[in-house]
């Protein structure tokens, strides 16, 4: 066993180094710079310890943007799971091999174009003269277009869910492949109905996939900006937009402080979720 350690270590060294240099180091730089001081003379930061940037998060409603971003991320992730789980179930358990392949391919179609175009196209669908309003008016259900369909939180959610849905669906599919069909047949033989099999076997066994899907969507939304800028109301904001605003006036420590707070939240979610649901099980380890 010990003799195999050196080659294993050698193989691990490169990815470990990559993670440290490309992932961990920049994050540490962000955290350290967040407590340095911006110097208007040099237009850069100097290493004077200062927590002023963290205090500034509590001003001008910046903390509200962080909270509302996390709220949007949570809601989008939950909606994606609500849509993605039955979709993944249908693709894996109900559709035949050919149909499931077609459905999977269809899920990737939106990614053939840029995220900018995808978001922009929702303006043409949800706008005053857009497809939805036109249809409702044509059917006689409305006499005037609905304004809240576009430039609203509703529109932002629609855009975010449309963008993120496949990122929830694919981990769910992966987790469903780990459900042994023999278990379901056995449960059925023992008299368990559809909902019982679902709630006692499928859902618990797909929990790592549910959490992975949740995490992917959550993180994507926290880092997004296009949907909010294209579909949100006047001055709608999200963390990335706020960081851009702050960078525009060269307030780097504040931008890094906001990033650090968001990083802390995301790491906490990952660690808590992993401890509870075991992400590793998604890839075959610790299968119950």
């Amino acid at each position: 066993m010990n003799r195999r350690l050196p080659p294993a270590f050698a193989l691990m060294a490169l990815p470990l180094l990559a993670i440290l240099v490309l992932g961990f180091l920049p994050l540490m730089v962000v955290v350290v710079w967040s407590v340095w001081t911006w110097d208007p003379l040099t237009y850069w930061i100097r290493p004077d310890f200062n927590l002023g940037s963290y205090a500034a998060i509590l001003e001008a409603g910046r903390w509200m943007v962080i909270v509302s971003t996390l709220g949007k991320a949570l809601l989008t992730a939950l909606i994606c799971l609500l849509i993605g789980w039955p979709t993944a179930y249908a693709v894996h358990f109900l559709a035949g091999r050919r149909l499931s392949l077609i459905l999977l391919a269809l899920m990737t179609v939106p990614f053939f174009t840029s995220y900018l175009i995808r978001s922009f196209s929702w303006r043409l669908v949800l706008g005053r003269t857009g497809v939805v309003n036109d249809l409702l008016i044509h059917l006689g259900l409305l006499s005037a277009p609905l304004d809240w369909l576009l430039f609203s939180n509703f529109a932002v959610l629609v855009g975010l869910v449309a963008s993120c849905l496949p990122f929830a669906t694919f981990p769910l599919l992966l987790s469903m492949r780990r459900v042994d069909p023999v278990l379901l047949v056995a449960a059925e033989d023992l008299g368990a109905g559809f909902w019982t099999r679902l709630s006692t076997i499928v859902v618990p066994l797909t929990m790592p996939g549910i959490f992975a899907g949740f995490l992917f969507v959550f993180v994507m939304v926290v880092g997004s900006s296009t949907e909010v800028q294209m579909l949100g109301g006047a001055g709608a904001s999200i963390v990335s937009v706020m960081i851009n605003d702050v960078m525009r006036v060269a307030n780097y420590p504040l931008a890094f402080a906001i990033s650090s707070v968001v990083l802390l939240v995301i790491f906490s979610v990952v660690l808590a979720g992993n401890a509870r649901f075991g992400l590793a099980r998604l890839f075959g380890e610790g299968q119950s």
Binding site: A60, G61, V65, S237, D245
Partner: peptide
């Protein structure tokens, strides 16, 4: 007052 402009713009966004 360019940094103050940004601060006010945030207040506007969050209003």
């Amino acid at each position: 007052n360019f940094q103050l402009y940004e601060e006010w713009w945030q207040k506007l966004r969050n209003a």
